[in-house]
Nucleic acid binder design. Structure first.
Lengths: 334, 334
DNA sequence: CATCAGGCTGTAAACGTTTACACCGGCTGG
DNA sequence: CCAGCCGGTGTAAACGTTTACAGCCTGATG
């Protein structure tokens, strides 16, 4: 391994000068600087990050903690984060907290000392984190986490408003029996979408019917099963709001299989507006979320906190959603 | 920040004993060890990774370099890698090499000194990497990269065999005008699938017709456009092989829009077998790839090289694919 | 001419670990 | 009773950086 000492020796300067030439350039004479840089280049010198971080107590990396990774949702989030991080000269240390695996706290511990800040996405996160696992004042941005009293920035998708808009739209089309296939149990996004559903029902003067709210877990299979269950209730729904597009597509499959026409017999709406939504048959009405923007903003907030930790006050942002009407809800052709 | 000195002082032992108590436990008396650990716990001590890596010249992280992140393909790969890495006590430093962004070499440089090994996925990778950007002997596993003469392990999906099996199947159903919607230009996966397509044609006694090979880029929109183009050729195809499922779904959309029935008028096959494939209408015949296994195996190979660098010889593995026949190709109902 | 400023460079001390080496008892075996 | 071993512990040196401090030289100012 070639160290800065080797560079200094080869360039016939001291290590101090070498170090300065490489990144505090204004303190060193022009010729010396160029000479050192040439030598460093020739020797393929790369500074040892560990040693540097020992001195500066900074790593130029951020940690990204996600729940189990699946679907294009996460790759979009990661893309947004990574893009912003690269722009700021940071690296992303990624870790997923799987259900069976090590706990959130263990994951946090293992990241301590490796990262300057953290983006934590944990829709099932219950709240009391920073107390134990993190140095107080450690920069953290919460992504789609349930609100908590911890003093951290947070960014979330407007789940409530999006779901509400969808259900309001369905009600506006004259539906009175509107069902929901819910997201995963204990999931914050799922809970918020459910809340939006109920609120929209009330606002439309409709009563919440427990038999029209079936459980799900965001998978296509759950949408399939959910739709089948809904077809069996005594006074079946004329519209179904699936808490994400995957389940909506599963539901489409089940309805087709049962001989129901969409949207003529029954309307369907999803959530997320994944790219595929407009290509299924019928094209899926959904709630559009700019997922990579979610990642970008989270990273952006984190870097803001990192670069200027002065006068930082906790912010809670919400990423807006927009209703995208296509054929599956029957309002008009798109 | 609480250091090992603090722990040592609080436990009334030397730093050496403290250090040993924490991970070379057999060298220290039972009581001392427990005492030190209790203190470390109470103080929330976490070792400074930089300092440790300075001594051991090891980081316990691996770098993961991916092309632009999109679709569920990548989140699956990452999932597989991360899972294996966590099992081995490693972290993943993730970076994507975007088209407009910094070059592959820059990305490699920025990872130097931060990671013990590297997983590089770059279907457009041209070959001459290790020479300059990496210390020689640095453990690298290549994922879906074009074969090169660099002395690195590599793992790839059996693109050629999968595509060949698909096209052979279509030919076996009696189709003689079989088209392909190709993957991205310059992409190795795409090229291999194309090669499988041509080989299968030849094996079936069919002639390659250039007008039946339209370009694409793995996106739904490209599948849409590709299918429309294919409908316009003078003697249109009776079967289409789309180089991935996204394009196949785009093609389904276009065909439906043009009033063609699938599979009665025209058969369709995809590649990847994404979860959604079985839920579209008609259910999509595809080539199944266990994507997360790809990541797992890559990580596995890397750790094998890291833990025991002795007697390591370059290996090239191929992840098998299986043809999944569903309704879209018309052979039978599933 | 003496002094001083300021640009440039070098010396050496830190940062938090791990570990080679030395040390110190107490026990065993001759 | 002594030599030697061994389990348990401490001291201090390394790892590769950054940076405070000091020093040197040149040129300008009094």
């Amino acid at each position: 391994m070639v160290t800065i000492r080797d560079v200094a020796r080869a360039a016939r300067v001291s290590v101090a000068t070498a170090s300065r030439a490489l990144h505090k350039s204004h303190l060193v004479a022009h010729d010396t600087r160029e000479a050192v840089r040439a030598v460093a280049d020739r020797l393929h010198y790369t500074p040892h990050r560990g040693a540097r971080s020992l001195i500066t107590s900074t790593t130029h990396s951020i940690g990204v903690l996600l729940p189990d990774l699946y679907g294009e949702f996460f790759s979009e989030v990661i893309r947004g984060i990574d893009q912003t991080a690269q722009g700021a000269g940071y690296h992303c240390l990624l870790s997923s907290v799987r259900h069976g695996g090590p706990t959130l706290e263990a994951a946090l511990r293992s990241m301590r000392g490796r990262v300057d800040g953290l983006i934590l996405m944990s829709p099932e996160f219950t709240g009391d984190l920073s107390k134990r696992a993190l140095p107080s004042g450690f920069p953290v941005v919460l992504l789609n986490c349930p609100p908590s009293d911890t003093p951290h920035d947070s960014i979330a998708v407007a789940n409530f408003e999006g779901a509400r808009a969808m259900v309001r739209h369905l009600a506006g089309l004259g539906h009175t029996r509107i069902a929901i296939i819910q997201g995963a149990e204990g999931n914050f996004d799922a809970a918020e979408r459910m809340r939006g559903y109920r609120t929209a029902l009330t606002e439309a003067g409709l009563r919440f019917a427990p038999e029209l709210a079936v459980p799900g877990d965001f998978s296509e299979a759950a949408g399939d099963a959910g739709a089948r269950a809904l077809l069996r209730v005594v006074d079946p729904p004329t519209a179904i709001f699936a808490a994400n597009d995957g389940m909506a597509i599963g539901a489409l499959y089940a309805l087709r299989d049962a001989g129901r026409r969409v949207p003529e017999d029954i309307a369907i709406g999803g959530f997320d507006d994944i790219p595929m939504a407009r290509y299924v048959e019928p094209a899926l009405t959904s709630v559009h979320v700019d997922i990579s923007a979610l990642g970008e903003q989270a990273a952006g907030r984190l870097f803001a906190a990192l670069e200027g930790p002065l006068e930082h006050h906790v912010s809670r942002a919400t990423l807006p959603t927009t209703l995208v009407v296509r054929r599956s809800c029957g309002s008009r052709r798109t």
